[in-house]
Simulated assay, not measured.
Amino acid sequence: MAKSKSQGKGKGGGTIAKVEINKKPSAKQGEELLDTLKTRFEENMDRHKGLEWEKIQAKLESTPEKLRALYAMESTGGVPDVIDYDKKTDEYIFVDCSKESPEGRRSICYDGQGQAEREKKGVYPAGNATDLAEAMGITLLTEEDYRQLQKLGDFDAKTSSWIATPADIRDLGGAIFADYRFGHVFVYHNTAASFYGARGFRGLLRV
């Protein structure tokens, strides 16, 4: 899980541990991660029919920065797995496939500006989605990405996840998130400064 770096007051007056991203796995941790990803890949072939793990692993071993990004996804509860392959760019697409929003990335605002607004009021979230995604080396899911993921299962049935917000919405102070309720995917809005214990974000990595 994510490590505690510092703490601040939450909305209820309690403390919230800051999300800290670890992208420096040891050699042993790197090997264990590859084993975990391989097992997950083999146990969920419906997500990536026709793809071969050996080719994916070869790419990961030749791009250490991608493996480090996956380690950050895994260690914060993302449960990353391959859900697509882009033939045009020859890239495998990993996405956080945890059943609920990654537990190690919750209680966060949408972006740095939203976080700063909150902290000016003496309320301290655990971080923000856009900065954390950048630190991890991944990108936030777009609405299209999120809906594609939901075709592979029911995700965020009890939680919600921030998703990439169009500039015209963000310019007005808003941000969007999504979840799965009543057999449907819903996309909603909040102020970018909002944060909740049951909302994190899902990321995408191209390898």
Rank of each mutant, 00 (worst) to 15 (best):
T130M: 04
E134P: 08
I138H: 02
P80F: 09
R40F: 05
T165V: 06
K120G: 07
Y196S: 15
A2S: 15
K3A: 08
G13A: 07
S6R: 09
S194G: 14
S26H: 01
E119Q: 11
S101M: 02
D154E: 15
L37F: 02
E119R: 07
V187A: 13
A167S: 11
L172W: 11
L149S: 05
L70M: 02
S160R: 02
G127K: 06
S194A: 15
R199V: 04
I56L: 04
T15P: 01
E144C: 05
Q57L: 06
D171E: 10
T139S: 10
F94D: 03
I108G: 01
A126R: 05
L132D: 00
E65W: 15
L152D: 13
G8Y: 14
L37N: 01
K66S: 04
P166C: 10
K3I: 11
E61C: 06
R202L: 08
A192W: 07
Q57I: 11
V95A: 09
N190V: 12
C109Y: 08
A17R: 10
Y110L: 12
L140Y: 03
I138F: 06
Y71R: 03
T39K: 09
C109R: 08
E91G: 07
P102N: 01
K9Q: 11
Q7S: 13
K38C: 12
M45A: 15
D171K: 15
G127C: 11
S107D: 09
G13T: 13
N190C: 11
E144N: 11
I56K: 05
K24S: 15
G50D: 10
H184L: 09
Q150L: 07
S6Q: 12
Y196A: 14
E117A: 07
I169D: 05
Q7P: 04
C97P: 01
Y124Q: 06
D81F: 06
G13V: 13
Y188L: 10
A17S: 15
I163T: 07
A135H: 07
M1E: 14
L141G: 01
Y146P: 02
G153C: 08
A175F: 09
V79P: 02
T89A: 08
H189S: 14
A27K: 06
A192F: 03
L34Q: 03
L141V: 03
F201Y: 01
G104P: 08
P64T: 13
Y85A: 00
G122V: 05
F201S: 01
K18W: 15
D46E: 09
G200D: 03
R105V: 12
R68Y: 12
S107F: 07
Q7N: 13
